[in-house]
Design a protein around this nucleic acid. Sequence first.
DNA 1: ATGTCGACGAATCGTCGA
Length: 258
Amino acid sequence: MQIATWNVNSLSVRLPQVLAWLAANPVDALGLQELKLVDEKFPHDAFEAAGYHAVCFGQKTYNGVAIVSRSPARDVVRNIPGHEDEQARVIAATLDSASGPLRLINCYFVNGQEPGSDKFAYKLKWLAALHDWVRQELAAHPRLALVGDFNVAPEDRDSYDPVGLKDTIHHTQEERRHFRDLLALGLSDAFRLFEQPEKSYSWWDYRMLGFQKNRGLRIDHILVSDALRAGVTACHVDRAPRKNKQPSDHAPVLASLA
DNA sequence: ATGTCGACGAATCGTCGA
């Protein structure tokens, strides 16, 4: 099966692109982030017409996540249990496939703005809460994928300017430690299971011709559990949608699983 | 500080967040 993640930066604006992308890339499951709409405005009909089920967790103006899938989602969880949060950032669900159930956790990680800021402190707390909960989820669901916009460039090679951006947001030691802590739970970065082109990124700033100059970061990830890892046959960033007329600043990332 | 998007409230732009 194929799974994917895409920060669409407003589903209202990007819906036609998402539908076109699904038609060209008929993945079994797609995690969306930054819906920027309330649940009442989620376009269930459009996805249904395209042959997909969808569960969503939105809010006004900011954040918002959804799982779009061929098979219906069950055991849906919204946000991190026990972690009070006004921001809609997490949706998890179990999807049935021929190889067995897949637990999919789709997250819009906190951006954090700037190290030392209140938002950065919120980011670190959120990351710690996520870590504790993902450990439990892994114990309950061996076949698990954690996908989304992590807002962390895990290593220097995941940034267009690791020297100039050293210790800035997405690049700090604390964020990278949290990323490695997630891996240490028994997860693998699907992208790094394969040879990849140098300077592979998933996000480019809208400003200053970021995409044209490939000044990007790899901050959108698909992490797979040990039980899934051996069955992963491919993972790549699809840069094509970033070339659309009104693109999201993020490109989708896809992985093929057994 | 700046650049560019998108949402929002109360404008036909300013502010916030990314």
